[in-house]
Design a protein around this nucleic acid. Structure first.
Lengths: 201, 201, 201, 201
DNA sequence: TGATAATCGAGACGGTACGTCCGGTCTTGAC
DNA sequence: GTCAAGACCGGACGTACCGTCTCGATTATCA
């Protein structure tokens, strides 16, 4: 059994180049934000030819999306034995922690900005960024309904719009910080609405 | 008492030019979206010199903001005798109605995208777009608390983040439509627990 | 008998404005040369409206020409009792002296540069700047022929092309200075064979 | 032995693009003169991006200079066995012939006009246009002095100023044509002054 | 071992738009 | 009718990036 992909003919892609691009992109996004983020700038900083970027990513947005995927690990939203409320609180706290990194928050903000331009990217963002989180949330809520932590008459979609929406809203419009206080209050308010009376001791 | 503005020296700005720019900008935004929206394109379509645009608006974003301000009228969110729930429902329906216009929704989406670039614009957007709506909402909720329609323990800020956030979230990420169904379900969900038990007969 | 021009209706032109424009133009030409010379710049420096310049001069070139005419006085080239050779030497020395002023030399250089653009100006330059000098020179040479200082077989036009040409050539191409040494050597060379053998003792 | 130039990295410049630019520039200069000569216009006519022009020439003037260098061939001024007088006459006739082409004369006139703006260009014009011709002339005159065709007391610099000056003077100020009659009369007048008595039979 | 092929860097290519400058004209209210 | 002020349309400037392309050189697989 061979885990290696079928070796293509020709010179293989250089892993180092790949990493250099992602690192440079992250750095540029961190320092200059969406406005200062250009393929040309990334290539320059990475010491890489523009071609080497376009060979891997068809557009600026695709690179941004990969930047997101690369750094994804932390935030999880799963019914992992914990109480539903605790799982939500943990997710929000991880998110808050993650967004403290300017590179990361700029990546997300740029991704949305770029998607306003680029329908293909918009679809990818929905499929890779938005839906997986919603799916996690949906499963968690349904789990909570079974355990009795969540009331049965909750409108799951709208509830997910409320909680994820609040995060994006604060992130993109910037009228208030996405911080620990937000995580705490959002969780509290969420469960004030959706928690079963008897489930919250 | 003089209502006329203190006549500035020099040739006054041409109102027709002003309107032509806004109209052309709207049209372009309607047809080509954020990606196809350029000062040059607006100037061309309006039959106006680029300088005439830059004289009025320092940046693309400032023009977008004015485009928003111009078309503002419809959506209101006031405790105008009606029940709080009805006021919210009316606001969401007006918003839904408004966003059916591609020009208008592109204006809002572009405004947010552009603001990711431009901190000065971001501040203006918060002051002119975000905060006024939040303030309306805040007043309405407080009014509802007095009348007993809204429970006293509601976290107003977070609640506003939930409901406005959901709108922006759907608008910008596009995973679901901002339509009548959304308005209905969001209102319902909002009042499921936010409303005092005895206030909704 | 009235020397005053027939009084036109309306507010008379302001002499001070006129002078302010010329002074500012000269200053700008002195400091920034042809490249930095713009009607807009002159208006700004003179504290005058652009209109007030265009009312008086139809184009940049016309203003430059007037700048030349204003400062004309010094250089004369007349058979004023002196020997022809002395008259020429005096003319060249006056010219050299005049051109030491950067404003003046820039005026002349700009006038020629501008005339390459503007046939109407080119004609004016010929009529007001070139021909009068040539006419003076022609009269002087003819006078010299009568007195025997200048040989009869001299081609006057070509001779004038040689001597005035040399000045413009040095002024515009800048390969060598238009200075006292030039004046001396040019006069000497001019009279080496142009002068009758017996006329120069 | 390798005559190939050390191949620079990257895609080599396209010779066709280069030629298209020069051809378009020449055409534009021919048709519209200095006033109508713009980088933008050249790019449009050549079907070339503006950047492709700026990549090669840092300024309008640099392009004009290359236009001059490209079309240089014809005029020679060398002591090629001929008599000095004949060499001068030939040079002037070649120059006259060359200047009949509006493209060529506009190139020279524009070059001088532009150089009034641009000290760097002025220096290049002196080095590439003015001095080589003067150097040819200087060698020719010195050669003539050795053969006895030119008198020993001639001031070479001033003589060159006279004859080249006359050409530029007529070209730039336009008070008289640079034509065959001019060539003939200028040669005659020149040798009336500088020719040794015994050398002109 | 040598042909084939995809990679690498570098950088040229045609484009689009940027934001600015200046040209020359027009339009105010005040004088 | 002039004045200062300043708006108007238009053309060009020089720059930044876009995404594509063409080079010579390098590094792999496959015959």
């Amino acid at each position: 059994m061979n885990t290696k992909p079928a070796a293509r003919p020709g010179r293989p892609r250089d892993e180092a180049t790949h990493r250099a691009i992602l690192r440079a992109a992250n750095r540029l996004l961190h320092e200059a934000g969406y406005g200062g983020f250009s393929i040309e700038g990334v290539a320059l900083r990475a010491g890489v030819a523009k071609t080497s970027i376009y060979r891997r990513w068809p557009s600026k947005g695709a690179l941004l999306l990969d930047l997101y995927m690369e750094g994804l690990a932390p935030a999880t939203l799963e019914p992992s034995g914990k109480k539903v409320r605790q799982a939500f609180a943990a997710y929000l706290n991880q998110t808050v922690e993650r967004l403290k990194d300017a590179g990361w928050s700029n990546t997300l903000r740029s991704l949305v900005a770029e998607a306003q331009n680029d329908p293909a990217l918009a679809r990818l963002v929905r499929d890779k960024v938005i839906e997986p989180r919603r799916e996690d949330g949906r499963r968690l809520l349904e789990h909570g309904m079974k355990t009795g932590e969540i009331r049965r008459n909750v409108d799951i979609d709208i509830t997910l719009d409320f909680v994820f929406g609040a995060i994006w809203y604060r992130l993109l419009l910037g009228h208030a910080a996405v911080d620990e206080a937000f995580a705490r209050r959002a969780t509290a308010e969420l469960f004030k609405r959706i928690g079963s009376d008897h489930a919250v001791p």
